[in-house]
Nucleic acid binder design. Structure first.
Lengths: 194, 194
DNA sequence: AAAAACAAACCGACCAGTCGGTTTTATTCC
DNA sequence: GGAATAAAACCGACTGGTCGGTTTGTTTTT
């Protein structure tokens, strides 16, 4: 059975998410991850050729999840998709809190490390493009007021990012789930033609 | 003359800004900073008791600059202050690009390190409070449409942060100065009563 | 001469990655 | 079915190097 092998790999990924989130990518050492996963360093480097490769594997999994979610909603009417986003956002927001510091840290590394940049910039552009197309479709269909889809897409993405960023610094300073819901509602309402 | 001493301190601060910006807080080592400043480690630890204390000193200087700018515009009418923000924002945006990774990294550390958190959260809350009061004043004066000042403040701050964040990941992907100007104009126009 | 400022060697902890060797699993051959 | 063998998975001590901070001693300033 190569089942044992896959279990080990899964344990590594699980511990990596946990420790990267809790301590950050750099502060969580490979030794820490091995200890948490209950395996040796040899096993780790048997499964992943480097620490960076481990993160890239995690990133890949997340991106696939998002891509699947996008693909699943592809044929629905635009306002409905946006309503789903409204509803999903506070949830994303509540659950992303743990993983966000890790993403931010990686984002920072991406701005300085070419390998990571390559792995980050493509999906980032893909989502911006998809979101822009969605807004454009909404405008064309007559569901949305006339806006610049590219600019609007960036603004909505920005607001979401900024809210997460603020919640990170000030986790107890505001009921961020509520702020997030109010903000997305406000943004989407300002788009909808009535 | 203790002039020499102050020159050394200034050289350390200067090199610290430069290297923290270029490589990040963690990646820029104390040795690097000393080498760049042309001084020894002994001199460094004579002036600053730790690497963290050095950053806190830098932070302190920036916050004072911002506080002074806020104090200077205190008595002007609210829409005029906002117009100044609109005009200042692309400039801030263009110049903040270098320092932003450092701030983000520090922000991340703030979320995990109590010393840094204490030094970061107070000014953050101060600015949010100031900005909220400004919006409230605009609403009370009848210059702005009726909005929730707290929510609006957080949204504007969020958008600004998110734009910077995106520009960091995608420095060549968009003319971010233009995106920033358009975004701030759009946000402020949506506030102004006509 | 005393104190402040600075230089340079040094310390201990840590960390990503390596390597020789061992155990477990899968395959082959009788 | 069971030994023999090959291959994959795993172990953990070790390496080379980095980093923040300390210590000891020298120079400069007052």
């Amino acid at each position: 059975m190569q089942q044992r092998s896959e279990e080990t790999r899964a344990k590594i990924l699980e511990s990596a998410i946990k420790l990267f989130s809790a301590r950050g990518y750099n502060a969580a050492s490979v030794d820490d991850i091995c200890r948490d996963a209950g395996i040796s360093k040899g096993a780790f480097y048997h499964h992943f050729e480097s620490k960076q490769a481990l993160f890239l594997a995690l990133l890949d999994g997340w991106l696939k999840t998002i891509d699947n979610a996008i693909a699943a909603s592809k044929d629905k009417p635009v306002p409905e998709i946006f309503m789903q986003i409204t509803e999903a956002f506070p949830y994303i927001f509540a659950t992303a809190n743990e993983g966000l510091p890790m993403f931010l840290e990686f984002w920072l590394q991406a701005s300085r490390d070419d390998n990571i940049w390559q792995a980050s910039i493509a999906p980032y552009r893909r989502y911006h493009k998809h979101f822009t197309a969605l807004i454009k479709k909404g405008v064309d269909e007559g569901s949305f007021v006339d806006v610049d889809p590219g600019l609007t897409s960036r603004m909505i993405m920005s607001t979401a990012m900024g809210l997460l960023l603020q919640s990170l610094l000030d986790p107890k300073g505001a009921k961020w789930e509520k702020v997030a819901r109010d903000s997305t509602n406000l943004l989407i309402n300002s788009l909808l033609k009535r």
